[in-house]
Design a protein around this nucleic acid. Structure first.
Lengths: 207, 207
DNA sequence: ACCTGTGAATAAGTTCACAGCA
DNA sequence: TGCTGTGAACTTATTCACAGGT
């Protein structure tokens, strides 16, 4: 590691590279060049090389990158080399879709718990996960779950967040359309679906 | 408009400001200062002022910004002052959740059509919208729908995208975990849920 | 010849500090 | 005095060009 700080944008791209490499690996390829990978995932080759260079020498000049070695390295950087347990908070429409979502497995995530307020849902199972009472969020600490996906209505999002933080959660993927205030030990990534859609018309010429 | 180009990051923030202002407006406030708005939505005051300054003089020195006027102005910039029709492609778990999602209304979106391949779903209604056969995507042109939300499996995403573009769609909100190749007249915004989650562990210290 | 790794150049975005108006 | 508007300084990120292994 010869740089002092890794750019956030580089971290944002690492999962893209990881997925591309996993697919490459499934095809049976042993190595790949930055140009091939670039074509595959829609990023510039020099961007890829620059990003990798922050972490050391990954490739072999004239040859390219060893796919397996690179996968291992990126997983290590992102801390995806261990299984990460995640709790889902809020089993409504969106929450249910997230429980059924097949895409988390690639990165080694394990949705290990689900919580809701609705007494009708509590105790039932969805995708083999028992829905628990949200009043028992404090259990997350004992179960050593540090990550949560928040899919509750905006008006209870801050309140729930405070409880999550108290229960030792350190990372939150937030689907509520609101700003969450947390202490800076906690990392929040917000996905605001309506907001993403809201900036689309700007780019489209009228007519 | 005294600058040649509006930064993309500014456009990304405008919907945040818009939502904050709409909530302010509901509370009955006539005007708001950049500092108050900043506290409310979690952005710096100088960032807000800078962003607004790209579009001209919005505020009154010593007073703040007129909420109604600002809402109108931002809606105009984002082209949200007209009702934008959107088609949903893929009514699976995620697609259904999106159909039921209440958050689009704030920005004036109207989910006007839904398409799927599954014969069991075609003809049925979800949230008052009839699910149509995906082979009839070409109808989007006649119905003048320029925006689509893509919630189909990754392996059919590119194929469906090509059909959407052929049907005159100019903006796509893509939920599939893959790179979509489109001509540059079409704007794609990708929301990759697993990928967002995948960069969370990096920021969390071990232990 | 091929492909990586990286300093340097360029571009983009954020923060600051303060002039200017109500 | 309070708050906006903005040039300038600063920070961050992208792109380029090419040296240096295989």
């Amino acid at each position: 590691m010869r740089y002092s700080r890794i750019p956030d944008e580089t971290i944002r791209r690492l999962p893209i590279y990881l997925r591309g490499l996993l697919l490459t690996s499934e095809r049976g390829d042993k190595s790949i060049s930055s140009t091939n990978l670039a074509d595959f995932i829609g990023v510039n080759p020099w961007q890829i090389r620059k990003d990798f260079s922050y972490f050391g020498d990954f490739g072999v000049r004239g040859m390219g990158y060893d796919v397996q070695k690179l996968v291992k390295k990126i997983k290590g950087i992102l801390k995806l080399d261990i299984i990460q347990k995640v709790a889902l908070i809020g089993v409504g429409n969106l929450g249910s879709a997230i429980l059924a979502f097949p895409g988390f497995g690639v990165y080694g995530f394990n949705i290990a718990a689900a919580y809701d307020v609705d007494p009708k849902k509590i105790g039932k199972k969805r995708n083999d996960i028992k829905i628990e009472n949200i009043s028992r969020l404090w259990m997350l600490k004992r179960r050593n779950i540090k990550l949560a996906i928040l899919a509750v209505p905006a008006n209870s999002a801050q309140d729930t967040t405070d409880k999550l933080v108290k229960a030792g959660v350190r990372g939150i993927l937030n689907f509520s359309s609101c700003y969450l205030s947390v202490n800076k030990k906690v990392k929040v990534i917000t996905i605001d679906i309506a907001m993403e859609l809201a900036r689309l018309p700007y780019y489209i010429p009228a007519g």
